[in-house]
Amino acid sequence: MFESGGGLKKARNKYAVEVELDDGRVQILFIFVSPGTRVIDMLNDEREFIPFETSEGAIIIYRKSALKRLNPLFAAERLASRDPYDIIDVSHKASDQEVHEAYRKAVASVHPDHIQALGLPEEFIELATRRAMAINDAYDRIKRDRGLNNR
Protein backbone atom coordinates (compact mmCIF):
# COMPACT_ATOMS: atom_id res chain seq x y z
CA MET A 1 0.00 0.00 0.00
CA PHE A 2 2.97 2.33 0.46
CA GLU A 3 5.49 3.12 -2.23
CA SER A 4 9.18 2.87 -1.41
CA GLY A 5 9.39 6.67 -1.21
CA GLY A 6 6.99 6.67 1.74
CA GLY A 7 4.05 8.04 -0.24
CA LEU A 8 0.60 6.51 -0.19
CA LYS A 9 -0.03 4.26 -3.18
CA LYS A 10 -3.57 4.20 -4.54
CA ALA A 11 -5.36 0.86 -4.20
CA ARG A 12 -6.18 -0.75 -7.53
CA ASN A 13 -8.11 -3.84 -8.62
CA LYS A 14 -6.36 -5.97 -11.24
CA TYR A 15 -8.51 -7.36 -14.08
CA ALA A 16 -7.58 -9.65 -16.93
CA VAL A 17 -8.77 -8.26 -20.27
CA GLU A 18 -8.62 -9.35 -23.86
CA VAL A 19 -7.38 -6.40 -25.91
CA GLU A 20 -7.84 -6.19 -29.67
CA LEU A 21 -5.87 -3.38 -31.28
CA ASP A 22 -6.80 -1.55 -34.45
CA ASP A 23 -3.98 -3.39 -36.27
CA GLY A 24 -5.70 -6.74 -35.54
CA ARG A 25 -3.41 -7.94 -32.73
CA VAL A 26 -5.18 -9.60 -29.79
CA GLN A 27 -3.54 -9.88 -26.38
CA ILE A 28 -4.53 -10.98 -22.90
CA LEU A 29 -3.31 -8.29 -20.52
CA PHE A 30 -4.05 -6.93 -17.07
CA ILE A 31 -5.54 -3.53 -16.35
CA PHE A 32 -5.59 -1.79 -12.97
CA VAL A 33 -8.80 -0.05 -11.97
CA SER A 34 -9.51 2.04 -8.88
CA PRO A 35 -12.07 0.57 -6.46
CA GLY A 36 -15.57 1.72 -7.39
CA THR A 37 -14.49 2.25 -10.99
CA ARG A 38 -15.14 -0.08 -13.88
CA VAL A 39 -13.04 -0.77 -16.95
CA ILE A 40 -15.52 1.17 -19.08
CA ASP A 41 -15.08 4.18 -16.81
CA MET A 42 -11.40 4.18 -17.75
CA LEU A 43 -12.31 4.10 -21.43
CA ASN A 44 -14.53 7.13 -20.91
CA ASP A 45 -12.22 9.25 -18.79
CA GLU A 46 -10.06 12.15 -20.03
CA ARG A 47 -6.81 10.20 -20.33
CA GLU A 48 -5.43 9.62 -23.82
CA PHE A 49 -3.45 6.49 -22.88
CA ILE A 50 -4.12 3.37 -20.77
CA PRO A 51 -1.37 1.28 -19.15
CA PHE A 52 -1.60 -2.51 -19.22
CA GLU A 53 0.56 -5.19 -17.61
CA THR A 54 1.69 -8.35 -19.38
CA SER A 55 1.70 -11.74 -17.68
CA GLU A 56 5.46 -11.28 -17.30
CA GLY A 57 4.97 -8.02 -15.42
CA ALA A 58 6.04 -5.62 -18.19
CA ILE A 59 4.02 -2.42 -18.59
CA ILE A 60 2.60 -1.58 -22.03
CA ILE A 61 0.89 1.75 -22.65
CA TYR A 62 -1.62 2.01 -25.50
CA ARG A 63 -3.35 5.06 -26.90
CA LYS A 64 -7.09 4.67 -26.37
CA SER A 65 -7.71 5.31 -30.06
CA ALA A 66 -5.63 2.17 -30.86
CA LEU A 67 -8.06 -0.04 -28.91
CA LYS A 68 -10.59 -1.71 -31.18
CA ARG A 69 -12.07 -3.95 -28.49
CA LEU A 70 -11.49 -4.47 -24.78
CA ASN A 71 -13.24 -7.46 -23.24
CA PRO A 72 -12.98 -7.94 -19.46
CA LEU A 73 -12.48 -11.64 -18.83
CA PHE A 74 -14.64 -13.28 -16.19
CA ALA A 75 -17.06 -10.31 -16.19
CA ALA A 76 -19.79 -12.70 -17.28
CA GLU A 77 -19.45 -14.56 -13.97
CA ARG A 78 -20.44 -11.43 -12.09
CA LEU A 79 -23.40 -10.71 -14.36
CA ALA A 80 -24.46 -14.35 -14.27
CA SER A 81 -25.21 -14.01 -10.56
CA ARG A 82 -28.11 -11.80 -11.60
CA ASP A 83 -28.00 -10.11 -8.20
CA PRO A 84 -29.25 -6.62 -9.04
CA TYR A 85 -27.01 -5.08 -6.38
CA ASP A 86 -23.93 -6.64 -8.00
CA ILE A 87 -25.00 -5.41 -11.41
CA ILE A 88 -25.11 -1.76 -10.30
CA ASP A 89 -22.16 -2.27 -7.93
CA VAL A 90 -23.79 -1.28 -4.64
CA SER A 91 -24.20 -2.96 -1.27
CA HIS A 92 -27.48 -4.52 -0.15
CA LYS A 93 -27.19 -2.27 2.91
CA ALA A 94 -26.95 0.94 0.86
CA SER A 95 -29.57 3.61 1.44
CA ASP A 96 -32.19 4.28 -1.24
CA GLN A 97 -30.28 7.45 -2.21
CA GLU A 98 -26.98 5.53 -2.48
CA VAL A 99 -28.66 2.93 -4.67
CA HIS A 100 -30.09 5.67 -6.89
CA GLU A 101 -26.69 7.38 -7.19
CA ALA A 102 -24.96 4.07 -8.01
CA TYR A 103 -27.59 3.39 -10.66
CA ARG A 104 -27.13 6.84 -12.27
CA LYS A 105 -23.35 6.45 -12.28
CA ALA A 106 -23.53 2.94 -13.72
CA VAL A 107 -25.96 3.79 -16.50
CA ALA A 108 -24.24 7.08 -17.40
CA SER A 109 -20.93 5.32 -18.01
CA VAL A 110 -22.44 2.87 -20.51
CA HIS A 111 -25.14 4.95 -22.13
CA PRO A 112 -25.04 4.00 -25.84
CA ASP A 113 -25.27 7.63 -26.98
CA HIS A 114 -22.21 8.47 -24.89
CA ILE A 115 -20.27 5.51 -26.29
CA GLN A 116 -21.28 6.42 -29.84
CA ALA A 117 -20.18 10.04 -29.32
CA LEU A 118 -16.71 8.75 -28.43
CA GLY A 119 -16.45 7.26 -31.91
CA LEU A 120 -15.94 3.74 -30.61
CA PRO A 121 -16.63 0.71 -32.82
CA GLU A 122 -20.10 -0.79 -33.17
CA GLU A 123 -19.15 -3.68 -30.85
CA PHE A 124 -18.74 -1.20 -27.97
CA ILE A 125 -22.13 0.34 -28.69
CA GLU A 126 -23.80 -3.09 -28.74
CA LEU A 127 -22.07 -4.05 -25.50
CA ALA A 128 -23.04 -0.73 -23.92
CA THR A 129 -26.66 -1.22 -24.97
CA ARG A 130 -26.81 -4.69 -23.40
CA ARG A 131 -25.10 -3.45 -20.25
CA ALA A 132 -27.45 -0.44 -19.96
CA MET A 133 -30.45 -2.77 -20.29
CA ALA A 134 -29.07 -5.01 -17.52
CA ILE A 135 -28.47 -1.99 -15.27
CA ASN A 136 -31.99 -0.64 -15.87
CA ASP A 137 -33.50 -4.04 -15.17
CA ALA A 138 -31.45 -4.40 -11.97
CA TYR A 139 -32.51 -0.97 -10.73
CA ASP A 140 -36.17 -1.73 -11.49
CA ARG A 141 -35.92 -4.96 -9.49
CA ILE A 142 -34.31 -3.17 -6.54
CA LYS A 143 -36.98 -0.45 -6.57
CA ARG A 144 -39.72 -3.06 -6.74
CA ASP A 145 -38.18 -5.02 -3.83
CA ARG A 146 -37.82 -1.85 -1.76
CA GLY A 147 -41.26 -0.49 -2.68
CA LEU A 148 -39.84 2.53 -4.50
CA ASN A 149 -42.12 2.50 -7.53
CA ASN A 150 -42.39 6.29 -7.76
CA ARG A 151 -38.73 6.95 -8.76
Rank of each mutant, 00 (worst) to 15 (best):
E20L: 10
E20Q: 14
D23T: 12
D23P: 09
V26F: 04
V26P: 09
I28V: 15
L29I: 07
L29V: 10
F30Y: 15
I31G: 06
I31E: 01
F32V: 00
P35M: 07
P35C: 09
G36M: 10
R38S: 15
I40F: 15
I40L: 10
I40S: 08
D41I: 03
D41A: 14
M42E: 09
L43V: 07
L43E: 08
L43R: 07
E46A: 14
R47V: 01
F49L: 12
I50R: 06
P51V: 02
F52G: 04
F52A: 02
T54F: 11
S55W: 07
E56H: 12
E56G: 15
G57Q: 02
A58Q: 13
I59K: 15
I61M: 13
Y62V: 02
Y62P: 04
R63T: 04
S65C: 10
R69K: 13
L70G: 03
N71Y: 10
P72G: 03
P72C: 05
F74D: 12
A76T: 03
R78E: 10
R78D: 07
L79I: 01
A80F: 06
S81A: 10
S81Q: 11
D83R: 06
P84S: 09
Y85S: 05
I88C: 06
V90R: 01
H92W: 10
H92S: 07
H92K: 15
H92R: 14
H92F: 10
K93G: 03
K93V: 00
A94F: 07
A94Q: 01
A94M: 05
A94E: 02
D96R: 10
V99Y: 04
V99S: 02
V99P: 03
H100G: 01
H100P: 00
A102F: 04
Y103I: 01
Y103W: 09
Y103S: 04
R104G: 00
K105S: 12
A106E: 00
V107F: 04
A108Q: 07
S109D: 08
V110I: 14
V110Q: 03
H111Y: 13
D113F: 09
H114E: 05
H114V: 12
I115D: 02
Q116P: 00
A117G: 12
L118P: 00
G119H: 07
L120K: 13
P121S: 14
E123N: 05
F124W: 15
I125Q: 11
E126H: 13
E126I: 01
L127P: 00
T129L: 11
T129H: 08
T129A: 14
T129N: 11
R130V: 02
